[in-house]
Design a binder for these strands. Structure first.
Lengths: 345, 345
DNA sequence: CTGAAAGCGCTTACAG
DNA sequence: CTGAAAGCGCTTACAG
């Protein structure tokens, strides 16, 4: 197995000291033009790649952002993940992922600690807050080492930089159903111990209350985000709430499952029943009928997270301290398609 | 900002040398039970996490697998990615991702080199081979450093460990259409410079030829894997090949786009036209009608890739050399659902 | 069983 | 402008 080329190899080959090679590598001034050129040629010729481990160890920074993530098989999380990677690269950072296999809350501090062993310059958490009991990061030492940020209050104790306006978006899409003339709007909710599910639920309830309707349990079915649960829930809703003429499924997957059952039963969407979802997965536009839903700008989420993280890193390098940045508010957009568009039918 | 705890801090606190702490950390024998216990207590109390950079630098191994990937927004690649991470973790390895933003082939050697700066113990490539001109990794030095493996001939010159039987699976699903009584089977192909697209195309052609049919250009429309292109292609096929009574869409997204147009035109699936896809994205089961497709065991792909990679790493540590492992053949499975199930209708 | 010495491949002051 | 010295936080022989 071949040995890696080291900075000493390059120095020897170029007839200089390794400090000089280091200066060329890091674009420091104070290197004679001729020397710089000669060293650079050797670097190119040998295809020398500095050992990142050694470099990071002595420089005491890794230009790496740790990304604590989970549920990467879901659309939202993996879109955000890709966006984070993309924007980090654009700024000269790499990401080091730490994917949670399940949502065991107890070990969050442990996971952060393990991730920190890699000495990232900052950590971004994009773990959906899905546990029954609140989880706090309490260890002050842990939180004072490097910036740790999160979106939408994912982890209590960790700085929240992004307000996703989830409840407001839900309120708007339900309002849209009312505007289309639907009157009995049920909900296929996610599990309410998920923070996201609770917010979407609250938006639905708020929209109903604004129309003077007091929602009760008959209008609700609880799924687990899966399409299969959407199928089960729509059947349950029709059963327990016969007047239902529209449904807000709290994600597109559950809407998908609902649509299947409606087709099987010959219930026409949007004529007999309006259906809307949340997320705007790429498939939604091509479903039958195309699904009205809430579009989320995941790329923008990633951009904000990365920029805030790096901003905090730099402030810390400079001033030896980092402060909580402002909360960025991003308003998702309701995308109206046929599945709720009764007026056009 | 808090300082990280080091091995020396632990040693001092426990009243031993740092070598002894190191031995405890690495579970070496030859440490007195009482000493081990005392050191472990200090480690736990201080929540000491060894600096991975320093550790990896001196141990000359990182227990990290570099993952060169692309198109993570597509179902197949991200499923494989998640599987790789999962299986790597199970074996005590972490992954270091390197996500390609576009499929610029020219820089593959460069990308591998940059990834190698992180000194992964092995590299797994899961880049779809999608470029027009063949790309070879030629630099022997590059390939002799650490094991670099790939699936389905993704990168020429890199050891291929996984045979996905793509052509055979395509042949089988088209054969299934014939078995259902369809006779004029068109194809919505991917771009043929993608290796995968070519193989799926070849499977379709083979199935036709086995029935004594010589496929010609009228039976083919070329999409770009997107649902939108599927919509365009189905319209084109119906136009140029009016007898068409079944379509093999080379991925589920394109099948989705095709289904939408068929609905809009009132063409009944599977009665008037059979539709099948490839990939078995989670949505396929819940489309209307549920989509017949080819299911790929991505988790298994990840498992094989990780196990082979680590096997090669260990062989190299032991014997100072690594050899190309056997090709593992994995047969994807045709999942028959309503979209092609004419006999049941 | 324990610890002093050397080294991994870099960077960071600093002397010349 | 250049390079000798020290150090980052570990592990790896090796002497006792």
């Amino acid at each position: 197995m071949g040995q890696h080329i080291t900075i000493s190899d390059v120095a020897k080959e170029a007839g200089v000291s390794k400090q000089t090679v280091s200066k060329v590598l890091n674009d420091y001034p104070d290197v004679a033009i001729a020397t710089r050129k000669r060293v650079q040629e050797v670097i190119d010729r040998l295809a020398y790649q500095p050992n990142a481990l050694a470099r990071n160890l002595s420089a005491n920074q890794t230009r790496t952002i740790g990304v604590l993530s989970s549920q990467l098989s879901h659309y939202g999380p993996h879109s955000t993940f890709v966006a984070i990677d993309h924007h980090a690269n654009a700024l000269g950072y790499r990401i080091f992922p730490y994917l949670l296999q399940n949502d065991n809350p107890v070990d969050i501090e442990h996971h952060i600690r393990v991730l920190m062993a890699q000495r990232p310059d900052a950590i971004i958490c994009e773990v959906p807050r899905s546990w029954e009991e609140p989880v706090y990061i309490r260890d002050k030492d842990l939180l004072s080492q490097i910036p740790i940020i999160t979106m939408a209050e994912n982890l209590l104790g960790v700085t929240n930089v992004l307000d996703l306006q989830t409840q407001e978006a839900s309120r708007l899409i339900v309002q849209h159903l009312f505007d289309e003339g639907y009157q009995h709007i049920g909900i296929i909710s996610g599990p309410l111990h998920w923070r996201l599910a609770q917010q979407r639920f609250d938006g639905w309830r708020q929209a109903l209350q604004e129309r003077g309707i007091t929602p009760d349990e008959h209008c609700v079915a609880y799924g687990d985000w899966s399409a299969a649960s959407g199928s089960r829930c729509i059947a349950q809703l029709i059963d327990q709430y016969p007047e239902v003429d529209a449904v807000f499924a709290c994600n597109d997957q559950m809407a998908l499952g609902a649509l299947l059952v409606l087709h099987e039963r010959g219930i026409s969407v949007p004529r007999d029943l309006g259906v809307v979802g949340f997320d705007d997965i790429p498939e939604s536009e091509f479903l039958w009928p195309p699904l009205t839903t809430v579009h989320q700008p995941f790329d923008q989420y990633g951009a904000v997270l990365v920029h805030k993280a790096i901003e905090m890193v730099k402030a810390n390098v400079k001033y030896g301290t980092f402060e909580a940045p402002d909360l960025t508010v991003i308003r998702p957009e309701v995308v109206i398609r046929q599945s709720s568009n009764r007026s056009r039918t």
